[in-house]
Amino acid sequence: MTASQLHDHLVRTLMRKAGGTLRRWRTVVGPVRVHDPATHVHCNWSVTPTGTSREIAEVERLLDVVRLEHPIITAG
């Protein structure tokens, strides 16, 4: 999975589970940062969500699940 595919997956899943618009969730999730797997062995990506406390909590809950399913991604 690439960073852009992961971002799309996060945004669409949040929209389905929590409602709202794609545009809003794209803003809340922000960019997916890809780290070097040599230094981030267990999970080489991260996001820093911004928004309301409810929105951030929704993102964090989803991230816990998605990190288990897709711990290593590629840039792109």
Rank of each mutant, 00 (worst) to 15 (best):
H70E: 15
M15Q: 15
G51M: 03
K17V: 06
V11T: 05
M15L: 12
E60L: 13
R23V: 08
H70C: 12
D36A: 03
R33G: 04
L68F: 09
M1Y: 00
G19I: 06
W25P: 03
T50K: 14
A57N: 12
E60W: 05
I73V: 15
E58I: 03
R67T: 14
Q5W: 01
G51P: 04
C43W: 06
V66S: 12
L10W: 00
S53P: 09
V28A: 04
N44Y: 03
L10E: 00
T13Q: 07
V66F: 12
A18C: 13
D36G: 05
L62H: 06
H42N: 14
L6D: 05
R23F: 02
L62W: 04
S53T: 15
R61V: 04
D36Q: 05
R24C: 01
R23L: 09
V65C: 07
R24L: 12
L10F: 06
V59E: 10
L68I: 11
I56G: 09
D8R: 13
I72V: 15
V11R: 00
G30I: 00
E58L: 05
E69W: 11
L62F: 04
R61W: 03
L62Q: 06
A18M: 08
V59G: 11
L6T: 06
A18W: 00
A57Q: 12
R16G: 00
L68V: 15
T50P: 03
R16C: 00
H9N: 10
V47H: 04
T52L: 02
A38M: 12
D64A: 15
H35D: 10
E55Y: 08
H7Q: 14
G76C: 09
C43K: 13
M1S: 05
H9Y: 13
R61M: 07
H70D: 13
G19F: 05
H42D: 13
V65T: 15
T27G: 05
I56P: 09
E55N: 08
T52E: 10
G51L: 01
V47A: 07
W25E: 02
H42T: 13
R33K: 13
R12W: 07
G76S: 14
R24T: 11
G30S: 01
L68M: 14
M1L: 03
